[in-house]
């Protein structure tokens, strides 16, 4: 079994109103000097295979087909 983590983030240049709101909230909690907060999503998955290359190829396919909207989002894949 392979454990993987997929991280999906907004592309540069895509406005992130949620990130902006979080940035504002951090400021109001007294965390000074925090800028450019961007929020995203993390997916932890378990794949029933021992073949790392196959797992990576499948994860890439999953990202392209469902986990990320590549119009606005980037993704990274990390195998444990």
């Amino acid at each position: 079994m392979i454990k993987a983590r997929v991280t999906v983030t907004l592309k540069n240049g895509v406005l992130d109103p949620q990130g902006k709101a979080i940035e504002g909230a951090l400021g109001s909690l007294g965390f000074d000097g925090v800028g450019h907060v961007r929020q995203g999503k993390v997916f932890d998955l378990e794949l029933q295979t021992a073949d790392k290359a196959k797992a990576e190829a499948e994860l890439k396919d999953m990202c392209e087909k469902l986990l990320a909207n590549t119009v606005i989002e980037n993704y990274t894949i990390a195998l444990a």
């Binding site: 895509v14 109103p17 119009v71």
Partner: peptide
């Protein structure tokens, strides 16, 4: 339709949240 790739672009959270 956008998620299905049948139209160009994407819809995001309202700017006002």
């Amino acid at each position: 339709l956008l998620e299905a790739g049948m139209l160009p672009g994407a819809l995001m959270r309202n700017a006002s949240l």
